[in-house]
Design a protein around this nucleic acid. Structure first.
Lengths: 344, 344
DNA sequence: TTGTACGCGTTATCAA
DNA sequence: TTGATAACGCGTACAA
């Protein structure tokens, strides 16, 4: 019941007749301490059940081995893989990861940024909330030389590290793929346009149409807010009621695309013969739905690892906060049955 | 580039001609400070850009507002929902959440426990690694009155808070459901039997058979190690090659169950007419596969919230570490097409 | 190679 | 209601 008194370097000092500083150095494998003394001290430390207090170390050294990560919501396949990558890399480097969810609300993101700052994290990895349009709440980190890595959903105007995919190229290639399959009337499920990823995917879509001599039909351009299952269904219904319904759909995420497949099937539309569909993200559901959904795969875990690397490098090299290196990763078009009309 | 000096309570004290203690108290809304002074101090603090240093506060007060969570792997639907619940509840109570993945390795779990301890977390939420059979690495927390909540995958012999579902009842009911659908030869995909959840689900399965006059056929009892997609497929193949294949399967997770559905369909087995299947977890894929998979739903998010509550209560009430309250949550059988033979 | 002395930013105790 | 002082556990400049 009673809290045992914890063993500190002072206790070790008394026990071993060394000064606390020697103990401290030995425990950190400092070069100036003899191999033998170091070994001895570490042995006794282990025997006495000494455990370093990283809170005290952080306070003293004014740097914390904690990486903060801010995302919309953990329980989404892309996000949880991203975090998984961050945690793996951070753990290997002996860092902790603290998480916070914005639920895509700007207000939460601001609050969470405050909390992260108050915890004096050593670096921050951020994928913006859907609502976020203003990035002032990240300035405090930059001002104090705490590295920030924006990943996937990044701001347009904040100078910092970025780890992203080429959304424009991915959108272009996804659309081109449908064209190659013989689609002439290609619809697009577009997400909120102030968000970089959706904006660029749409641009890629538009350019692919133009460059392949297909006119853009505004009726086929569906703006969705959250790209949810429900929205996907509504969008599909709407498209099927057009006088000239589409023969292809490029959806900016898999959730809406899967929903569209189910809805179209219910109404007797043959996929991919009458309607070819491609999504985005390679969520697990995309390979399970029938017909299986073609999609664009995102290297989520790798994006997390690289983001962590950026933070660690920055800290090691003692770089200034003005660095804004951009890392752009490849995506891959995964062709499955929802769009495979011809042998490839 | 240069790190701005941060504003501390000393700076505020100088500015306002108060002592640091008064500043500290005012910032924490201590009762002994007048309303007016408190307001004034907080106003100036905000204006000067003061941000509390929770590292220093933790060191001094010897309690940290950080909850550690140890899980197998983040990017699994159940786990990410659990974490999401933890983070939501923690955030509301102004606590941070730090995560660590074991990848189901005992060794990692031990290392991570050390790291958590060194961070002087205020409480720990754990879902055990698949490999874990020994819980000595959690003793350090109990010894120092740091509350531990085991959730879902819990040890049999460690006295502490537990938040679980009634796996036995769930296994029983899932099996009974298949029996009610007319199944006579019901197979079971069982996970590693030293893990409580799999062990109990299997017990429930066995008892359901016995109590309904169905003999247990060892050939239908398939022991899997990781319950992966691949294992599910292999198990299904094996079962279909039996002289008397099953007409029902209760799988301890959805992954293997979905895999079994796909494999059976390939081989021309009609589901649910010839083979009814029920899984466990209600992963997103289970409602997408065709026929949609019946399953047992787990209140993952809620389990996370409750676990967090336990930690917070413990800290508030200053309880001793010998408390071992158990919270058992309800599960729900979700009947979908993979097992719906009769109208219900 | 080791020791001394100080301070990181905060809060708790005691006294006024 | 407020202030002076010490202490939380550690790391490091400086001295020896």
């Amino acid at each position: 019941m009673k809290k045992k008194k914890e063993v500190t370097i002072y206790d070790l000092a008394k026990e071993l007749n060394f000064s606390p500083s020697t103990i401290s150095r030995a425990l950190n494998n400092h070069k100036s301490i003899g191999k033998k003394t170091t070994k001895e001290i570490q042995k006794v430390a282990a025997k006495m059940g000494y455990r370093p207090n990283s809170i005290a170390a952080s306070l003293r050294s004014n740097k914390s081995k904690t990486i903060g990560i801010m995302i919309s919501r953990i329980n989404r396949p892309f996000v949880s893989s991203l975090i998984s990558g961050v945690e793996d890399a951070a753990r290997k480097a002996d860092h902790n990861v603290i998480i916070s969810q914005s639920n895509d609300k700007y207000e939460n993101e601001v609050k969470n940024a405050k909390a992260m700052y108050d915890s004096r994290i050593g670096g921050l990895i951020v994928s913006l909330a859907m609502e976020t349009n203003n990035t002032d709440h990240f300035q405090q980190f930059a001002d104090n030389n705490i590295p920030i890595v924006f990943v996937d959903r990044v701001p347009r105007d904040f100078n910092s590290y970025r780890v992203i995919i080429d959304n424009y190229a991915a959108g272009y290639r996804a659309t081109k793929h449908l064209i190659d399959q013989g689609c002439k009337r290609i619809a697009h499920f577009a997400g909120a346009q102030h968000v970089n990823v959706y904006n660029l995917r749409k641009k890629g879509y538009l350019d692919a149409l133009l460059e392949n001599g297909i006119e853009v039909d505004e009726n086929l351009l569906v703006d969705l807010e959250t790209m949810s299952f429900e929205e996907g269904r509504e969008a599909m219904k709407m498209l099927l009621e057009l006088d000239f319904p589409p023969d292809g759909i490029f959806s900016s995420n898999d959730t809406a695309a899967v929903s569209a497949i189910l809805c179209a099937k219910e109404r007797g539309v043959r996929i991919p013969e009458e309607l070819a569909i491609i999504g985005f993200n390679d969520d697990p559901i995309s390979s399970i739905v029938e017909p299986s959904l073609s999609t664009v795969s995102h290297p989520a875990m790798k994006m997390g690892e690289i983001s962590t690397q950026r933070i660690l490098e920055h800290s090691e090299d003692n770089l200034g906060s003005s660095i804004s290196e951009i890392t752009m990763l490849d995506t891959e078009i995964i062709v499955r049955n929802s769009s495979r009309r011809r042998k490839i």
